[in-house]
Design a protein around this nucleic acid. Structure first.
Length: 486
RNA sequence: GGCACGUUGGAGAAGGGGCUUAACUCACCAGCCUUUCACGCUGGCAUUCACGGGUUCGAAUCCCGUACGUGUCACCA
């Protein structure tokens, strides 16, 4: 074990084009584990699958880390003493180590064709590779290599015995060697597989804690065998419970696209704040000790994070709870900041003369995501078609007829208001209600419906009039009177 | 199918032999506040910890089995 070293973790994503939320959480935990103890955190790009390369995918990953504040000490863009940090640029390294393993007798050349492998799979089913080339003679191997035959290098797994390792969250994990395949280390195209490359790199880069999803829990014995074969010190393993999604049928499975927006960028585009997303996923599979706190900044997470709080059981990603976090973060935004983000959106859809700052203020406590804004102010952007029945309200006992009357009486009063402000308007209507004997609620209802032309609005009658401004407000009331009168 | 891991309310979860008549949060429901909605506030929401045995004076907590779920068995990571 390596207790005296400082912790060094890594995030090693494949550039697949988007940042899966589960991946982000893995990155977060790896980051937190290192930072909580003053250790370092590095990023490595695992692009050994040439067929799955996606243009610009690395930038997506790096942008996400930047937006979430997960800073790294070594990696693409920042460099470091253990580079390069992109696996496709390290091919010579893997080849060298793979050959070393062959020389030691812990790996072997395999010349089996893909067709043979496929046939094996078709007939036998679940047996896997039959180790056909495991015991080829040295001469035969040399000859076939000489002849230029295509080959891969496979790991020579012991036929008997048990391999176990200790996982920091799941505990002791044991696996019978006979359950393991002689997995491919080096592919025919010269690239290493994940199974091999990550072991070599983690060792060379000095990684002390391997943090990754629990889908690797049962393949880790194979990796441990590799460390042992090289005589390298094994790292600590930290497998994280899976992130699940719940389908419409109620069934849960590994969170994937069929469950909706599952990438960081999808969520951001959906109006979620990076801090809210990060905060939420931090709590999926981890719970702080001795506190019920739920709102955490990245800095606070760094302070509180520890492995003991990591759970073993998978957790279901819940958009409702994410919504709650997001609305909390939005409410916590200073008004100016909220306005700075909302006003540009509003400016695009609202007519000139609208008080956008006031509108933004009304929206501040009523919005769950920024993406919702447009839908909430549609009534400002245009005069919505309005059914007279909208004037009927049970609680305030209003009817279209009553509202017409109120509007007709209130309209000249409003026209005389010099100071077109919420407070002034509100006092005026209240006074009118007192004078006329109508319930204040009824008056407000009539005016609000007339002005907004919508049943549910962000803000009350006079708040909305302030947003609309005098001219538009009176004009809308006139329209309402005409419509109700007809 | 083999192997591995998991199982506390609709979701996230605390609790890890007596302090639990099982915290807290989301969702949901009811009420209050109120210029609709939202915000905010108050209260409700598992007599029970997948099930069955066992250990113990005592179990959600320890042991065994069963069921269910998920993951994994690629020249993908």
């Amino acid at each position: 074990m390596c207790d005296n070293q400082t912790v060094k973790t890594r995030f090693a994503p494949s550039p697949t084009g988007f940042m899966h939320i589960g991946n982000l959480r893995t990155a977060l935990y790896a980051y937190l584990l290192a930072r909580a103890q003053g250790g370092s955190f590095i990023v490595r790009i695992e692009d050994t699958d040439q067929e799955r390369l996606v243009e610009g995918a690395v930038d997506v990953i790096l942008d996400t880390l930047r937006m979430t504040g997960l800073s790294y000490d070594e990696g693409p863009g920042v460099g470091g003493p253990n580079g390069p940090y992109v696996q496709s640029e390290r091919r010579d390294i893997y080849k060298k180590y793979a050959e070393q393993l062959v020389a030691q007798g812990d790996a072997y050349y395999c010349f089996c064709t893909q067709e043979r492998l496929a046939a094996l799979h078709d007939e036998g089913g679940l047996g896997g590779y039959d180790r056909h080339c495991r015991d080829l003679s040295a001469d035969e191997v040399a000859a076939r290599l000489q002849a230029g035959e295509s080959y891969v290098i496979r790991q020579k797994i012991p036929l008997e015995g048990v391999t176990s390792y200790y996982d920091e969250v799941f505990g002791e994990i044991s696996m019978e060697n006979k359950e393991m395949q002689d997995q491919i280390l080096l592919k025919a195209d010269g690239y290493p597989t994940y199974n091999f490359a990550h072991v070599v790199d983690d060792h060379l880069m000095g990684i002390t804690h391997v943090v990754r999803g629990s889908e690797y829990l049962t393949s880790t014995p194979k990796y441990v065998l590799l460390y042992d074969a090289f005589g390298w010190e094994r790292p600590h393993y930290v497998h994280l419970p899976l992130l699940m999604g719940q389908g419409p049928d109620g069934k849960v499975s590994k969170l994937s696209k069929r469950h909706g927006a599952v990438s960081f960028q999808d969520l951001v585009n959906g109006g979620y704040l990076p801090e809210a997303i990060l905060n939420y996923i931090a709590l999926l599979g981890w719970c702080p000790k001795g506190t019920n706190q739920e709102i955490f900044s990245l800095a606070e997470l760094q302070q509180s994070f520890s492995l003991e709080g990591v759970s073993k059981s998978p957790s279901v990603f819940d958009y409702e709870k994410l919504n709650w976090f997001n609305s909390e973060y939005i409410k916590a935004l200073p008004p100016e900041e909220f306005a700075a983000r909302a006003v540009p959106v509003l400016a695009d859809i609202c007519p000139a003369g609208t008080d956008l700052t006031k509108l933004a203020a009304l929206l501040h406590t009523r919005v769950i995501t920024f993406a919702e804004i447009a839908g909430k102010v549609d009534f400002v952007a245009e005069r919505l078609p309005l059914d007279a029945e909208a004037y009927t309200n049970k609680k305030n006992k209003t009817t279209p007829e009553l509202c017409l009357q109120i509007l007709q009486q209130v309209r000249p009063l409003l026209a005389d208001v010099a100071d077109w402000q919420n407070d002034t308007l509100f006092e005026l209507l209240k006074q009118y209600a007192a004078d006329s004997g109508y319930k204040a609620g009824a008056v407000m209802w009539a005016v609000r419906i007339a002005v907004a032309r919508k049943a549910v609005t962000p803000g009350g009658a006079t708040e909305l009039m302030e947003v609309f401004g005098r001219e538009e407000s009176l004009s809308r009331i006139d329209l309402a009177i005409t419509e109700l009168g007809a």
